[in-house]
Nucleic acid binder design. Structure first.
Lengths: 194, 194
DNA sequence: TCCGAATCGTACCGATCGGTACAGTACCGT
DNA sequence: ACGGTACTGTACCGATCGGTACGATTCGGA
């Protein structure tokens, strides 16, 4: 009951996400946000809590939409297919013309002031978690004979994620999709075969 | 003539560099700076111009000290030695306990508000320039038969720099020196031989 | 010794930051 | 129809932002 809200929550969240993605957590002001989201300041606070909670919700939305392909990647049958799906997926997501360049997980807050430290730690945590998921998947692949027995799945996962993070920086710096593709192709050429 | 300044310019610059490196351009306030540099606000402005010029001067100092090894790397005799020197150098610089983790060129400003855009562009420009220098060095290596004739030096340079940027993100996220070393080792294992 | 020049510290500027008090408004259930 | 409830806009809060005016201070040169 009560007066119904006049905006769509996910639309507003998309507006916030776009801004945080392009300008980072600290580089985005509440005035930027309210303008892009098309809502007033009190509406923002009533609906999303505060700037930090808004960022976390935008990040969740980012994860469940733009990063959905990562879950798909883990289901691929071979380690090579998993990594291929993952890296080409990152290349696409980081250079999607519909969204800002690069990766929200890095642009959001790579380095920041003390008051944004919780945000930075959240992003670090998600990166670590993502790497761990890939590591477990590669472990599984090795166990099933899909990767050489003498390789280190955790090391391979770290290598792949390092590449992905580097690609995100390249994309933020203006690298195009083809440039990222060629990097992925080089990586896959050197991928260990069973 | 006039009253002599009571602080050392390079010492002050080192203080500013440390802060910009850890917290980024926008995450560092003038109050942070004056405290860390041990000078007052008007002294800062009289000596370094303004916050943006101070950042550029700190960046120059970063380049001429912490990044000196990159010039050394280009002088190595083989392409493999060049890349090895470069990547291990980055790994060391990004995890040097004397300095903040990661890379000033990324932590400084990966994503930012409009008013810091010139700073971001400066960093992008330096990354592109660095990649171009490596590309020319690898071109040279290919011409002298040190790299396979069918490889693309620009592509290889982009690959190496992508890895370096990814390592910087890993270091900022808390990765240790050994973790970065193992990534470098993996890369060199796959490096094309003449 | 005294003047010009340069640096120093205090105290301040307008603008913007994230966040909120409060009254008006539009809807629901009764 | 009417009260309770939730959202809306205006107008504001103290704190901090980057940047500066100004007078006191300390030096070299004449």
């Amino acid at each position: 009951m009560g007066r119904p809200r006049e905006f769509d929550i996910d639309d507003a969240l998309d507006g916030a996400l776009d801004l945080f993605w392009r300008k980072g957590y600290e580089g985005t002001s509440l005035s930027d946000l309210t303008q892009a989201m098309g809502i007033t300041r009190p509406s923002l606070y009533a609906t999303f809590g505060n700037k930090e909670e808004l960022f976390r919700k935008a990040l969740d939305r980012y994860d469940s939409t733009c990063m959905a392909f990562t879950r798909e990647a883990m289901k691929q049958p071979t380690a090579r297919a998993v990594v291929s799906h993952l890296l080409y997926g990152f290349a696409d997501a980081q250079t999607d013309p519909v969204h800002p360049s690069g990766c929200m997980g890095m642009n959001g807050a790579l380095a920041c002031s003390e008051e944004a430290e919780p945000i930075k730690q959240e992003l670090v945590g998600r990166r670590v978690a993502g790497e761990a998921v890939l590591g477990r998947r590669l472990e599984e692949a090795r166990a099933s004979g899909d990767l050489p027995a003498d390789c280190d799945p955790a090391e391979l996962a770290r290598y792949v994620m390092t590449l992905a993070h580097g690609m995100a920086v390249q994309a933020t710096s203006g690298a195009g999709r083809e440039a990222l593709y060629s990097i992925v192709a080089m990586t896959l050429r050197a991928w260990p075969s069973a």
